[in-house]
Amino acid sequence: MENNISTMPLEMTMTAVKLEDGILTLEIDNHSGYEMTYGEDYELQRQEGDSFVKVEPESDIVWHDIACSIPDLTKATVTCDLKPYGKLQAGVYKLIKSDMEAVFELTADYDPD
């Protein structure tokens, strides 16, 4: 009997790379064993105590209803506009996109304007 089981970690990871002019740049690394898709939508959360709570935007956010794909063993760079959230207080944040999470810390208050 042939063993068709992969022993490599099968996952997609998302890492925050930089925040500049209100635009958060993320890197998605696909090691899932499959071509994966994700959309433009995301949720921003801020850590309060031991849990994360949703940050509500100050203005409406509009996302296009599209699916982006990333082949297996590939990295993709994506951006998320955080300007609709206005001034963000220093603290630990989590951006959630298509079942992926990127945690990042703002060491000082951040105003994109």
Rank of each mutant, 00 (worst) to 15 (best):
E35M: 10
E58N: 13
A67K: 11
W63F: 15
T79W: 05
G39A: 07
E11M: 12
K18F: 04
M12A: 13
M14D: 03
H64V: 10
T25W: 03
P9G: 02
D29L: 06
N4D: 10
S6P: 00
G33C: 09
K18V: 07
D65A: 14
L26C: 11
V53S: 03
T79R: 09
D29F: 06
S32P: 02
H64A: 14
L73R: 14
M12C: 13
E20T: 13
W63Y: 15
L44C: 06
D65Y: 11
M12E: 06
N4S: 11
E2I: 12
Q45W: 03
A16G: 09
S69W: 04
A16R: 03
C68L: 14
S59E: 15
T25Y: 05
S51D: 11
T25E: 14
K18A: 14
A67E: 15
L19Y: 03
H31K: 14
T74Y: 05
P71I: 00
T15H: 03
D72Q: 06
D60P: 02
D60Y: 03
D41K: 11
I23T: 12
S32L: 08
I70W: 01
K54R: 11
Y34H: 12
E40K: 09
Q47T: 03
T79D: 11
I5N: 12
V53R: 04
E40W: 05
T7N: 14
Y34S: 12
K54D: 15
G22P: 08
E58K: 15
M36Y: 02
M14K: 05
N3Q: 10
Q45P: 00
G22E: 08
R46C: 02
R46P: 00
S59I: 06
E43T: 14
T37G: 15
N30M: 05
E11H: 08
V55W: 01
E58C: 01
I66S: 03
P71A: 14
H31E: 12
D65S: 11
D72L: 02
